[in-house]
Design a protein around this nucleic acid. Sequence first.
DNA 1: TAATCTATCTTTACAGTGTAAAGATATCGT
DNA 2: ACGATATCTTTACACTGTAAAGATAGATTA
Lengths: 199, 199
Amino acid sequence: MNDYHHGDLRQGLLVAAHAVLNEKGVHGVSLRACAAKAGVSHAAPTHHFKSLSGLLTELAVIAFKDFTAALRLAYDEGDAKHTLQQRLQTAGNAYLQYALSEPELFKLMFSSALPDHSNDRLCEVSGQAYAELTRVVKPLCDERGITGKESIEQAELLVWSTIHGYTHLSLKQMDVHGVCDDMKAGMPPMVILGALLQP
Amino acid sequence: MNDYHHGDLRQGLLVAAHAVLNEKGVHGVSLRACAAKAGVSHAAPTHHFKSLSGLLTELAVIAFKDFTAALRLAYDEGDAKHTLQQRLQTAGNAYLQYALSEPELFKLMFSSALPDHSNDRLCEVSGQAYAELTRVVKPLCDERGITGKESIEQAELLVWSTIHGYTHLSLKQMDVHGVCDDMKAGMPPMVILGALLQP
DNA sequence: TAATCTATCTTTACAGTGTAAAGATATCGT
DNA sequence: ACGATATCTTTACACTGTAAAGATAGATTA
């Protein structure tokens, strides 16, 4: 006698997908492996997710929410006793730390192919993560006398680029050379970049 | 009567792989599709490349060489008549422009899964691209009074992170929303970031 | 020149993948 | 109690990478 009702297979598949992702990596995750891990037949996921992309998109949505929460927590912790620049550095470190604690999930979130990045909900939650990371940029621009909507948006873009780019590089280093000591130290002080790029 | 000798199938497969990459995207490239495009049976590539990963690794190696050449050209063009900071901005623009001109190839180069990033030759050519991009950083550090090997290396890392991160973001925007007007303008002026991060 | 050797490609085969269609089962509502 | 519906399974098919064995063309050698 087979169990025809799992209880909450949708959630079970998401948990299984997360596990398979961590075991086999972003490229090794398959719909059938997720189904097997959840203890159901290979075709069962179809009834809860339209496709593999659908399952991974949903997993990415959940991950972005966690990610945003982690960024928010780090931002709210060091409140008034730090300078705005220090808080930006802290935000960058939180970004990096999340990626290092959930490397495969992070790679999935920013994978170019697997999840559907045109999905509305995914766009929304990734936008929220972006907003959370760049939350300190606006006041920092005010402080430095940078005005104009366009300049502020460019500042946000560049801040995100720097932090995300460094995180991307760290993950690649981790893949090739294993865990490195430099990573526990967090991001390099971005003030160095400031010295290099100051007008 | 079948042709049992292609002439230069190795090169033919690399050309075919590039074509398939541009047609189907990074995730859509398959060994069998490359073989079909090259006009040979699906198992022929095995004798020239150990696997799909081997073929794509070789393609990435070639791409990195082109990439490095493009960066070097841009660097050598604007020589003495620009400030070091302007030359850094130029290098960043060249980085972005290559990615926008060969988006799928660029994505392949930095794809976490498909090519073998522990491959010695791939490590070497990607290292050369990195060195070319950050070539201006050392003299810029001298100019700004940044000394110490570690600080200079951190500066290089942060510069690469900013430029690569912005490029990554632009490609994602291109995937989701199509070609955008902002891209032809190149990178935002990194001096904005300097104003934000100055000590 | 003729035979053999070697490199190159094809054919065949197998395990794995996503996904669609149809069938089986269990729970829910009436 | 019984039919409706949601949920899962079975079956099927067209793909994928890759290994093994067979066929062919060109090169080498006697």
